[in-house]
Design a protein around this nucleic acid. Structure first.
Lengths: 196, 196
DNA sequence: TTGATTATTGGACATCAGTCTAATAATAGC
DNA sequence: GCTATTATTAGACTGATGTCCAATAATCAA
């Protein structure tokens, strides 16, 4: 443990921003696998070590970059008196799918990286996956409170199903469109028999 | 295009078997990411090029090896007069989860490899993913024919949901146990209101 | 201005995947 | 036995990741 001394050369914030921008630009152009760390550093006009000073792996950098660039995607759906649970879910999923049709390849690469690097896995889960899981869980719980969903159903489990449904399609490169958003919604909010 | 001539040194079948065995052994011991292709070839007592003569990547080799070693896992469920659709599904999922609790790390690595290599992705999907998807689709279609499932539900979509549910948990390293198999089954076969 | 401290840089280094090549080995047909 | 053919082997080579290091640059405190 070193005690932080005073002074010292300050971190160059521009370098970090340039690295994120370079990474996103190159990866959207050539694809995640075809962009080397050296290429990103070079395009950012920065030494390779500077990148490693900030992130452990390419995945950590890209997670940061894509998170920053798309924080408005898959945002908390805006609740309104007039919007029903099914409508909110369908809109949310449609938004997510729009994002995935743009950056789906990057997300597939990040999911892959998470399988190969336990440290990145928890970072990815905590900062990206888990929050979105909770958004849908909350949405479903509220729908349950409004009696749009049977009280004996488990919002967490349903959120698991919902995310699984489109992860599976994303990872197997099947289409994610509005029709699929509707199918998921219909399945979740399918009219059910009264319990006993 | 070369026309296959007669003669020539025959392929050494033992080399292929030794490579598959070495790969499985090393990977189960050290983990997929910690085993190099050179180490597999070395353990098999074979030149590295011999491995490349048979498979394009480590993933292709391991897919072959794990497929061969576990073809009895996730096998077609045995139908019986007395077994209901829910029971068949729950048993099937329980079997799959037993397998995943043994070789889940390998499958996560293969799913990751599929995201990084389009050629492997189709090989993996065609030989491994798709057949299992169809098993569950068939199981659900039969249940539908026996009126255990409403005719307005879509077995293919449900199979997508089911696989997604446990892929999602597998990829996020959450537990896959008998309780989860039951939860999936209950959700799929949940009593529904009559249509209209 | 000087000294301590921290960031950045450029380069070396080990390891790995994947491609390629020349030499050698094992077969079939003659 | 001889030739054509194909598989195997050992090794070289390129490009990539990740680690390490010494030199230099930029700041604070005195």
């Amino acid at each position: 443990m070193t005690i932080a001394g005073t002074g010292g050369r300050p971190v160059n914030a521009q370098a970090g921003a340039a690295l994120k921008a370079a990474a996103l630009h190159l990866i959207r152009e050539k694809g995640y696998e075809n962009v080397s760390i050296a290429a990103i550093a070079s395009k950012a006009g920065v030494a390779r070590q500077t990148l490693y000073n900030r992130w452990n792996t390419k995945a950590d950098l890209v997670l940061d970059a894509v998170f920053e660039a798309t924080h408005n995607f898959a945002a908390e759906p805006v609740r309104t008196e007039s919007k029903s649970g099914p409508l909110l879910l369908e809109e949310f999923l449609t938004n997510v799918f729009v994002h995935l049709n743009v950056d789906g390849d990057i997300l597939r690469a990040l999911i892959a990286a998470a399988q190969q690097d336990a440290t990145f896995q928890t970072a990815f889960y905590d900062s990206f996956v888990q929050p979105r899981e909770k958004m849908i869980t909350a949405l479903l719980s509220e729908a349950q409170a409004r009696n749009e969903l049977s009280p004996d159903r488990n919002p967490e489990m349903l959120s698991n199903f919902i995310h699984g449904a489109f992860w599976y399609r994303l990872l197997n490169r099947k289409t994610l469109d509005t029709a699929f958003a509707k199918e998921i919604t219909d399945e979740v909010f399918r009219p059910h028999a009264d319990v006993r």
